[in-house]
Amino acid sequence: MDVTIRVKRQDPEADGEHRLPYWQEYPVTIADNATVLDALIQIREDDDGTLSLRCSCRSAICGSCAMRINGHAGLACKTIANTVVQDGVITVEPAGVMPVVKDLVVNFDMFWEKIEAVDPFLKHMGREPDGEYIVSNDAMLHLSGVTSCIMCGACVSDCTVLEVDPTFLGPAALAKAYRFTADPRDGDSDGVSMERLWALSEPTGVWDCTRCNECVQACPKGVAPMDRIMAIREQAIQQGYNNNNGARHTDAFTESVAHSGRLDELRLPIKSVGGFTNMPALMDYMPVAFRALRRGKMPPIAHKNVDNVEAVRRLFRQLEPDPPAPRVSNNSPFG
């Protein structure tokens, strides 16, 4: 198969024109079942020794070759070229969010700092057993869905929150955190990782995810980071870490729909920040509120129920037998 690989290149250390990103096209002839990585290696070996990229295992296990292929992050070694070629061209760019070192190589420092920030090692309170921990195979298989993460950074590359807010822990680190919060061996004797759940409920943590689903799409290993983030939210709320904007937003959302059958968009943000006791946060909303008012987009003050609201309430009664947990302080109980 003849194909043109269009590579976004850059050498930030160079003097002159290559200091800024530029495009270079490489026409190559590759086997029909060749991967995008095969094509890039062929270019590097036969055509242009100055092209830099990371790659090693060629079988989607080392996590080196994440890059954007036709605009979306993925592993070059796991992408068969003929499935992505468009009009004879495959466009390849470095992963997003992280700064470029050279060509397709990005600087992963920020990625690893976030991983280290979640205390990425098993913390068992109390004495270790003499032999192995006795835990169910199902629990281990469930964790394998997360430990199959190869830290390739595809999710981070395409995370829409990290793009604008570098303080967010991000999908890879939060999936890593879930690997511990869901591990029956981590935390107290019931396998509850209280300290982690508290820390992850803080700003930069699980509530900063906007649920855009990009990380789930990008992940080449089926880890589904966003689903893990949602699972941590649930674990945290269950343990009583619900006195934060995210948890209150979730509760207020649920309450509104359960009560009236639809969302009360006026009261939702007020409840999310903690009601009228949190005046500073409410004042922050004022400019938005005024703009909405001026443009006629203010939600109605009188919130009406949907027709047949009783049917909705009946549904909620069937689905939600547990009363919400009492609110506790978000101050760390661990000092």
Binding site: E128, E132, M140, L141, S144, T147, F180, D183
Partner: peptide, 12 residues
């Protein structure tokens, strides 16, 4: 003990 998620038998 370090945390490897080894597969288990029916008894855990």
């Amino acid at each position: 003990h370090m945390g490897v998620t080894f597969n288990r038998d029916d008894d855990g």
